[in-house]
């Protein structure tokens, strides 16, 4: 499969300003590279503050990078202008975490979806009402929901509306930024299944961002693990769970509660030391070394490169790199 998105050494530093001077930088995303292949779901997992949402926003160009770039279908995303940019917006969409803030409270469902169509499609359907209703049906809503305001819906239904807005654009690539983390378990399963079905039907490529490893595993073909602005490991989804290489991935895996008491109590428990440091002054060398159970002196001095250990399995750790 061909790569549809190529992220190349992407960096986003946010300035911390005091009066007129820049006091420091929050290194939200700090030198990240990977590719996403057409038709796959690429999972991005990490804890709060690791920069995963910033990365998602950079890829759909809601933010401009400090350095590095993203290629979509071979074109540099941040150089697109005019018609090419419009074309990019039509092909790349994003679904946000909080369905309570992602819908304009003063617009009715019909207007929300119709706006997306008018903004991106060249051919405007003749009977807009019918067309919007058909999209709503695809996400499990019905015609009677057309002329209602967002506040009349539950969280799960709102997320369906947000997905309908994205479907209306008929994109190729969708960034899903924690689409179910504010929903209950039973509703989460409905939305995840729907996203899977839609992918099959329309051959979407997904970037699925979440802090929940179990959900990411269920959705993704390949998974990248992020820690403090860096990617520490990329591997096919099964492999990352069966044979995690990076100590952080191992710690993360052993920290997620498993909904099966027998397995949960018999497995090994690894815990990281202390708390994640601030992304303002990340530790030198490997960013995980102060918390890593297996850190050595090299880890504190030099940053480990992301290298391919096996086919399609990348890890950034001195345990596996030759030096």
């Amino acid at each position: 499969m061909d790569p549809i998105v190529v992220v190349d050494n992407l960096r986003k530093w946010f300035p911390i300003k005091k009066l007129f001077f820049t006091k420091g930088w929050v290194r939200a995303v700090d030198g990240v590279s990977f590719i996403i292949r057409e038709g796959e779901t690429f999972g991005l997992v990490g804890e709060s503050g690791c920069g995963k949402s910033t990365l998602g926003r950079l890829i759909v160009r809601l933010l401009e990078p400090t350095s590095g770039t993203v290629y979509f279908e071979g074109k540099d995303v941040f150089r697109l202008r005019g018609r090419e940019l419009k074309e990019f917006r039509r092909k790349v969409q994003i679904v946000f975490q909080d369905p309570y803030s992602s819908l304009n409270p003063r617009m009715m469902v019909f207007d929300i979806v119709a706006e997306a169509i008018k903004a991106t499609q060249q051919e405007i359907p003749e009977d807009m009402e019918d067309y919007v209703a058909s999209i709503l049906e695809k996400v499990g809503l019905s015609r009677e929901h057309l002329y209602r305001y967002p506040h009349e819906f539950s969280g799960g239904q709102r997320q369906r509306i947000a997905i309908a807005r994205v479907l209306a654009v008929r994109p190729k690539f969708i960034v899903l930024d924690e689409p179910t983390s504010s929903l209950d378990v039973s509703v989460q399963a409905q939305i995840l299944n729907m996203l899977k079905d839609l992918q099959k039907e329309h051959n979407f490529t997904y970037l699925f961002i979440s802090h929940d490893l179990a959900v990411v595993k269920y959705m993704s073909h390949r998974i990248a693990v992020m820690y403090l602005g860096k990617i520490v490991e990329i591997a096919p989804s099964d492999e990352i769970f069966e044979a995690p290489l990076h100590p952080y991935t191992q710690v993360l895996l052993s920290s997620i509660p498993i909904p099966d008491p027998k397995i949960a109590r018999s497995r090994m428990k690894l815990r990281p030391k202390g708390e994640p440091p601030s992304p303002i002054n990340p530790p030198p060398g490997c960013r995980f070394h102060p918390r890593c159970p297996q850190a050595c002196s090299l880890c504190a001095r030099e940053e480990p490169p992301l290298i391919e250990i096996e086919r399609d399995h990348y890890v950034a750790c001195w345990l596996y790199a030759r030096k």
Binding site: V185, V187, L213, Y218, I258, P259
Partner: peptide
């Protein structure tokens, strides 16, 4: 039963999660 089948288990490969129909 539905709730247990609706949560993804990271150690198992599940093709499709069960979802309890309807809303609360």
């Amino acid at each position: 039963q539905g709730l247990l089948k609706a949560i993804p288990n990271p150690l198992k490969r599940v093709e499709r999660l069960y979802s309890i129909p309807g809303m609360i």
